[in-house]
């Protein structure tokens, strides 16, 4: 059994439909076996079309800023250079999911809401969403553990942006509130 139930969501960008209609919950699971049964039967992120997302969130939290668990939160963002899609994307997304379902963030684990992988032509992104952007100790602990679990270089940095800041920036990236 897992600590909590999780839901996998899939987003496919079809411009004729509203954003929310393009977001579908695939399934829920609450055991390690059911996680692997799901993982072994869906496409890897690197095989998805540009414009698609997967999101894995605690059951009951929708993968959008507006959800009450997300609206005060933010995300640790890992931006991948285009050439990394074939090298690192699938492993980084799997390790992100294993951190989530294994509750790898210690006492701050409940502050982790979920994660999203965006497949984009200009560069893929993986983001870990947390509940309270102002909880510095929690956000920093989660960021340090996450960076280590992904095996990112000491020289690399990842930034944390509050959703409230991201939501008001349509094109350029929101400022980093924290960096590890």
């Amino acid at each position: 059994p897992l600590m909590t139930s999780w839901a996998l969501w899939f987003f496919k960008n079809e411009r004729s439909r509203a954003w929310r209609e393009n977001l579908q919950m695939v399934t829920r699971f609450d055991t390690v076996e059911d996680f692997w049964a799901l993982y072994n039967n869906i496409k890897l992120p690197s095989k998805l079309s540009p414009g698609c997302d997967y999101a894995l969130f605690r059951d009951g939290i929708e993968p959008m800023w507006e959800d009450s668990s997300n609206k005060r939160g933010g995300r640790w963002l890992v931006s991948l250079a285009k050439q990394l899609r074939h090298l690192d994307l699938d492993r980084l997304w799997l390790d992100t999911m294993l951190c989530l379902i294994g509750e790898g963030f210690g006492d701050y684990g409940p502050d982790v809401c979920g994660a999203v992988v965006n497949i984009r032509t200009k560069g893929d992104k993986i983001a870990l969403w947390t509940r309270e952007a102002d909880s510095q100790a929690s956000v920093m602990h989660i960021g340090r553990v996450y960076k280590e679990r992904l095996g990112l270089s000491m020289k690399a940095t990842i930034g944390y942006q509050a959703h409230a800041d991201t939501a008001t920036k349509s094109n350029s990236l929101a400022r980093n509130k924290f960096v590890v």
Binding site: V32, W36, L98
Partner: peptide
């Protein structure tokens, strides 16, 4: 309550178990 925590090694081993 009790926290259920699994490390990467355990989770990966579960993938391959029958």
């Amino acid at each position: 309550g009790t926290r259920i925590i699994y490390d990467r090694k355990f989770l990966m081993e579960c993938r391959n178990s029958p």
